[in-house]
């Protein structure tokens, strides 16, 4: 398990990380979500012991990380945002050999080929990394972390600048890592990607954790406020509810409205009194992007 407890990091007067606490359980994929400058990278660099926090405690696999420790890299590795993380003048295969060797290990040729084939890099094995597309380079960087064989993997904004197709391939890589028993902490702005991979989400804004929980748990938590009500009748029901969004679907109207559950009956009564016939009431489940906007937007 990775445990972050009361982490604080200041840069002069700016508090980049302010009392951040969360855990990444064994075998879990936890996504760290937040706007630019929220403190995600600072938190990640602190976990990887590449930055010394002002206070707080980080434990990896039950052992406390202290400044200057390097035992942790037997257990944890990572890909950092904005960095190449790989050598552009080395070929795909040489990069793989180098990074696994950096951890004191070696991968047999057959296993290397199998991995490269699994992630669509086999045909490029002899090509210098600088000649690969951005997506291929990112896949290679993640693969170079994977071959190090650590139990915990941290990926900082791995989808930055990637197209949809490569993002899905990367999500597939991350699920593969989880299936092979790894624990992952991933920061990203890409909500669709996070929805695809994450078991739990930690929302961070202005250096503080503002919400956290399982993806389904968060959906439930934010779901009760939004309803879709399908009605048939004359006129526009939108005029009755100025805050609602109304769609016309064939001969019916669908009203999307945010309200507390106890007010639902009032809405139904109002519709009926204006001659509308109720066809369906459905509680909407917001996607992660809507939850993000609610959580972070509410903070802004």
């Amino acid at each position: 398990m990775i445990a972050v407890e009361h982490l604080v990091k200041r840069f002069g007067d700016v508090v980049a990380v302010d009392d951040v606490s969360f855990e990444v359980g064994e075998g879990e994929i936890v996504a760290l979500l937040g706007p630019n400058g929220a403190g995600k990278t600072t938190t990640i660099k602190s976990i990887l012991n590449l930055m010394v926090p002002d206070s707080g405690r980080i434990t990896i696999g039950g052992r406390v990380v202290k400044p200057g420790d390097h035992w942790l890299y037997r257990h944890i590795s990572g890909v950092l945002e904005g960095n190449r993380n790989i050598y552009w003048r080395l070929t795909v295969e040489q990069n793989l050999q180098f990074f696994v060797g950096l951890s004191g290990k070696w991968v047999a040729r057959r296993d290397r080929e199998r991995l490269l084939e699994r992630f669509g890099l086999l045909e490029r094995r002899g090509q210098e990394a600088r000649k690969l597309s951005r997506g291929m380079q990112q896949k290679l960087a993640v693969l170079c972390v994977l071959v190090r064989g650590t139990d915990y993997i941290v990926l900082d904004e791995p989808t930055l600048g990637l197209d949809v197709d490569t993002t899905y391939q990367l999500a597939d890589m991350i699920r593969f890592m989880k299936d092979s028993g790894r624990t992952l902490l991933v920061s990203s702005h890409n909500m669709k990607f996070v929805e695809r991979i994450a078991d739990r989400v930690v929302f961070i804004n202005r250096g503080r954790v503002v919400a956290q929980g399982g993806v389904d748990e968060l959906r439930r938590m934010f779901a009760f406020r939004t309803y879709s009500i399908r009605v048939v009748g004359r006129g526009n029901p939108g005029q009755l509810f100025p805050d609602a969004r109304v769609e016309q679907k064939e001969n019916a109207h669908v009203i999307h409205i945010s309200l507390e559950p106890e007010h639902l009956y009032d809405v139904v009564d109002k519709l009926r009194s204006h001659g509308f016939l109720l066809e369906e009431i459905r509680r909407d489940e917001p996607d992660l992007e809507e939850i993000y906007l609610k959580v972070i937007g509410g903070e802004a």
Partner: peptide, 15 residues
């Protein structure tokens, strides 16, 4: 500059 220094630091042998 090329963004590989941190990877060298992440060796279990230490930089």
């Amino acid at each position: 500059q090329q963004g590989t220094l941190e990877q060298l630091y992440m060796s279990p042998y230490g930089f």
